[in-house]
Amino acid sequence: MTCLADLPCLWRAPTSVSGPALLRVQKYLPQAVQVDPADAAAQADALNRMTEDHVLVIAADTLPYSALPSLSLDPVLAGLQQPYAYLCRNTVTEEFTDISGPAVWPRDVLIAAVAASASLPRPGAVIPTAMAQWYCNPDARTAFENGFKATRELMPQADTQTGMSNLVLRASIGADAQYGTGWIMGACHALLEKYDPHTAQTLEDTALADTALRAQRAVDLCRQVRLDTDFTVFALSPGESRMVKDAVFALPPAARYRDLADLLDQAGKAGRARASLYREAAAWQWGDGDRTVVSSKASAKPL
């Protein structure tokens, strides 16, 4: 059985990358070939020099876990001739995300994808196990930008209860993380929908440069979001933020298992067998249906 450590690894990171990402990739994926994601020719050249059918792809802001290399290539997903990925944990909110997840690509599909666009599409198949962190907060401005983008991306789901809850949490927690208040500011701007990310960041430039100003601005922006929108967000204190992360993001949500199961249903008999295991896994953790909260009595204080 092929381990991911045995696969060639394309590390899509500019030469300027440093810090935790560099250390983790060097330590856990020593076979990684670093290429600039903006340089299609260099990527194609690197891929053409590889001989295996599949390639492990790591983004510049991904911090792989030590367990990643020892994972086996998933035979069913690999057989689909589509890329598949693992979840990441957001370094500010600790939520499970498919942004910057370590991905396994069929090499020929990857060659076509890098030729088509500088940014790779996110794989549709995501295994609901976190195998890396999405390092979204190396500095305050990047944290702001990522908070804005990730929140904006989720906004179409605001009309569902789960989507609304995810959005509100995304803009409320993170004060305990490095530059987490920058993330909260970016998320709040996305919820306010007044400015594009570049304009918003320019407006907040002074606050982003100062720790105390950032903390105050995060509180102010949360208040503004509460006043101007339906999103009830609060800039939680570092201790409150840690508590909520522990209580809310202990395990990947059921939808992650069910989404993968739906995809596996299309992968023949072996895929359907795996799909049923993923559905069972979701059901054992979260139940089969929606959670029911009783609030039928007047004396009861519904949540």
């Binding site: 009830t232 609060f234 939680l236 204190s237 409150e240 896994a281 953790q285 979260w286």
Partner: peptide, 21 residues
């Protein structure tokens, strides 16, 4: 922590525990 009432309500509303795997 000792959150203010509105934050306490916020936290209680958003906690959702899964069962132990």
């Amino acid at each position: 922590v000792s959150p203010q009432a509105e934050v306490s309500r916020f936290v209680a509303e958003h906690i959702e525990e899964a069962r132990s795997p």
